[in-house]
């Protein structure tokens, strides 16, 4: 492989190879962000609850 163009071209299979890797990256990253955000918002909610009223 000599050039970037050739690398991106992937011997004519560029669309499929990059499509597969792009989709995988998108799903893995999205799948990692969602629960991280959910945990943060849960912890925020907890903090708000314990600040809002003391005791049950």
């Amino acid at each position: 492989m000599n050039s970037l163009g050739e690398f991106l071209h992937m011997g004519g299979y560029g669309l499929y190879v990059w499509g597969a890797y792009g989709l995988s990256a998108a799903i893995l990253i999205w799948n990692a962000i969602v629960p991280t955000q959910r945990e943060k918002s849960l912890l925020r909610e907890l903090a708000a609850r314990s600040n809002g009223r003391s005791g049950p």
């Binding site: 893995l28 990692a32 629960p35 945990e39 849960l42 912890l43 907890l46 609850r49 314990s50 600040n51």
Partner: peptide, 29 residues
């Protein structure tokens, strides 16, 4: 990746399932 991801998700599950228990309340304060 699965191990890291499942741990975060498990924490969310535990926080929601145990929201009224003492240890979760302590996390908030």
């Amino acid at each position: 990746y699965y191990a890291a991801n499942v741990l975060v998700r498990m924490r969310c599950e535990l926080l929601e399932a145990e929201r009224n228990s003492a240890w979760v309340r302590q996390l908030g304060s």
